[in-house]
Amino acid sequence: MSAADGRLLDVASLAVQLPVGGELRTVLHDVSFHIGPGEALGLVGESGSGKSMTARAIARLLPAGAVTTGTISYAGGDVTALKGAALRSYRAEVAMVFQDPRAHINPVRRIGDFMTEALRTNHGVSKADAVARAIGLLAEVGIADGQRRLEQHPHELSGGLLQRVMIASALLTEPRLLLADEPTTALDVTTQADVMAILDDLRRERGMALLFITHDLELASAVCDRTAVMYAGQLVEQRTSSQLHDDPLHPYTAGLVGARPRIDGDVTRLAAIPGRPRSAYEAPAGCAFADRCEHVEDACGEARPPLEPIEDGFVRCRRATELRGMLRAGGRHG
């Protein structure tokens, strides 16, 4: 089923515009990446960077009136052209988990109805089989008393438990790609570690690919093979996770690493990035990060730099090679 080049998902030059107040506003600009079968890619960014919009474009969940250019292909086929039965079968293979389970699980239906509905209506699975599969998956995400949980309503479950239910239900159709949009952001940190371990185990056991969206660079690095950083609707850097953290090539990536306070060492003053994160539509004309970058030159404002291949990844900065190694010094202090 996979494309000939071994890529499960291939996003190329994706741009999305949304209608806001009668005009089209750019929210994504030139986003390109790919995910192989069983691979995990982290997508990291701040508010308005476009990371959730990227997942929604892949899941075909963009709002009405959205204009998409570029290509999204899954197993070699064009995702943007899918409809009817083909779209339903795509959605069985590409499942999504959201940040707030309470906003995405019907509060007046039982957990069992929520979990088994798609299997029974779209996939012709009998009720008994669907229930058995749901109980089996609940056990896999660490919920032992699945039978009892299926009879309960969402308000009877804690946030961490409900997020496990959402993950289990996303896995019911045995997807080959899971889009996880900040699945642990609303959870306590000890619960986050537990849920991340579950996601990581399931991914490895099933050979499932994962697009993991988060604002937490450290968390993405811990569970993903490669990590991409987004800023103002663009991908600015994509590397193997360890390289991204230890040897960032884009000044914004280095800034994100340096801005985060440390738990294991003392920093008298954080290396804050001046200004505030930009959305795609309000970014400066040349490099989108130019107005906050400490390494900016006049030429950075002239043309939008392309995403260029470099060693183990890609970076969108015209000074990347020249600045290499210097960014680290401007980031964290021991």
Binding site: T190, E218, A222
Partner: peptide
């Protein structure tokens, strides 16, 4: 539980001396 470089997420069941945490039971 805090992700840092080199951190791997662990399931709560792997904690031998884990305190009794309420989250897995009921709201």
């Amino acid at each position: 539980s805090v992700p840092t470089p080199g951190w791997r997420p662990r399931r709560r069941s792997e904690w031998t001396d884990a305190p009794d945490l309420s989250d897995v039971s009921d709201v």
